[in-house]
Design a protein around this nucleic acid. Structure first.
Lengths: 336, 336
DNA sequence: CTGAAAGCGCTTACAG
DNA sequence: CTGAAAGCGCTTACAG
């Protein structure tokens, strides 16, 4: 668009045009208060006329601040960490920070040192560690870096680390409240393996709401895996033992789809006979268009990435786990 | 780990220890050939002993190369562009480049200028534009930047632009060859809207293989949407008209799952009676573990991101569209 | 092959 | 409030 590219406009050019010294120009443009209003106006005007763009490389070098953040994507191959990672890099971009993203293998015990050196050579402003959910704690890496460290989508073994996490407890609470709010009283829970922290927290939320509503869970919680197959199998058993069940909180959307398929095949009406709620807002993730079938809890994973970045850049003095509030997304599987 | 942080080791320190000048030390460490082997060895040794890490900020400033790439995620909210974007930023990290990632709204006609200015202030090494697939062409932005521009996962209106794209034609070819290779001769095609470039290219690949195998397509191609619902509806019609169909190439995995559900419900054995192939390797994306049901074509989207980065950094002199070879991932829906 | 010197374009004490 | 000057830590012609 611009014709050719002659010498870029420097701060010295601005100073010369404004008739002030280089240092005065610098101060005026960097918002120092110890500048007269008229001088500042003159300098800002000159900068505008010349379309001055400070050379970010020179600024970084002189100030020692790189405007770059290191992002360690620990076990970030999982689909669920993708929104977190993307939420993080987009927020970084929106705040004019570059991301130096390293893949998980850099976090092996023996290779962390290499990442640390690379990042400190870059004079990184901070480090964001992106995990793969709440399944497992990450070893704290905070002490390895000289820059501030924030964790997204994983907890660590150090209770002082600032970690942004989905609120799985509240996910269980919201899902169950939604079903109770529809007037259902005979509610069951089908979910994944008991070993998962996320599973247990969702279940706890479920049981808290039942208790405070004076309801009793229909049958024991059925633990299996995060798959459609498991959902299909579990609903068969559940119906055999408790044909009067009115609603099911499913640990995630895959399980819910497995349940839904079986119910449809057996001619059981959803939500008229049995209402369903899942977790993940999977349809929201994969569908741009189309009608939503499942009611689900959205954990707002990309917002977890975004908030982690904000905390890192704003130097907030929080410590410990921070939970992202989930929300209900209503589909056709829960009725009035 | 390291105790405190005194003054970092500089190149001058290395030069002093090695007993050479600053400029000689610089040349030795930057692989200039006009250096005696013994001097170089001495300098490299000193650098190693001192654990010298060149200050990347100073290097960038002095050389004018930022080691940062601008990434414009154009309409990159779609699930399918996520692997491309993540493939790109991970490759950038692996090659020690930072990514300054801007969200789509920066690409509005009126706002491109702002991104251009921000990126040129950063003395960006190149620009990567990530689109949302092959559905629609992007307006070429190459002329807006002074740095090299590469496009990933989108084509542009300028035939000279270097664009990395999934090979949808070959996806159709591989899928169909796979079915033909299993001995199926009566093969149908259920896919999404005709308006989609991806749909038409997959269909063309399908028909090329049928033709070269001397086969005739079973019924016309059924165009609908990318959803499970459409797959379920289309298979009903197909079976009504052509109960002797032996295999179906589904335009994507969602459609294939819709088809699969109906077949199972009707007691039609898959793959014994009807074999299925989809596209996207969706199960590979969402499952870490578990048995694979669907046979699918993997378009290798994250590799598209990675290759785009390589092309950008290596300054390859390619122009025009570059197609990423897909591959077949076998599941239970196609038998021997 | 090696070194002295200028320079990259800012920021930031420090003096006035 | 304003300015002269040093300095950030490299790279890169240019001389020797």
């Amino acid at each position: 668009m611009t014709s050719g590219s002659p010498r870029p406009v420097t701060l010295s050019d601005v100073a010369a045009v404004a008739g002030v010294s280089l240092s005065t120009a610098s101060k005026a443009l960097n918002g120092s208060t110890r500048i007269s209003a008229t001088t500042r106006a003159r300098i800002e005007d000159a900068a505008r006329r010349l379309d001055f763009r400070p050379n970010a490389l020179a600024q970084s070098f002189a100030s020692g601040r790189s405007h770059t953040v290191g992002v360690l994507a620990h076990r970030a191959t999982s689909t669920f960490s993708h929104p977190v990672l993307i939420g993080a890099v987009l927020r970084l971009g929106a705040r004019e920070r570059a991301a130096l993203v390293y893949d998980g293998d850099r976090l092996d015990r023996n290779r962390v040192g290499e990442s640390v050196r690379q990042l400190s050579a870059r004079r990184i402003d901070g480090v964001l560690i992106v995990g793969d959910g709440h399944e497992q704690r990450t070893r704290s890496l905070t002490a390895d870096f000289h820059a501030p460290v924030v964790y997204a989508y994983t907890a660590t073994d150090d209770p002082d680390d600032l970690c942004f996490l989905p609120d799985n407890l509240d996910a269980g609470v919201l899902a169950t409240r939604h079903l109770v709010g529809l007037g259902r009283t005979r509610i069951a829970h089908i979910t994944a393996m008991y070993e998962s922290i996320a599973v247990r927290r969702r279940e706890t939320g479920f049981q808290q709401v039942l208790a405070s509503s004076g309801l009793t869970q229909v049958g024991p919680t059925r633990h299996g895996s995060w798959t459609e197959e498991w959902g299909a199998r579990a609903i068969g058993d559940l119906l055999a033992e408790h044909p009067d069940v009115e609603a099911i909180f499913c640990g995630n959307d895959h399980i819910a789809f497995g349940v839904l398929g079986v119910l449809e095949r057996r001619g059981i009406r959803v939500p008229d006979d049995i209402a369903l709620v899942g977790v993940d807002n999977w349809e929201g993730v994969i569908l741009d268009q189309g009608t939503r079938r499942l009611t689900s809890i959205d954990l707002h994973l990309s917002e977890i990435g975004g908030r982690s970045v904000d905390a890192l850049l704003d130097g907030v003095m929080l410590t410990g786990p921070q939970y992202q509030a989930p929300s209900v997304v209503v589909g056709a599987t829960t009725g009035c």
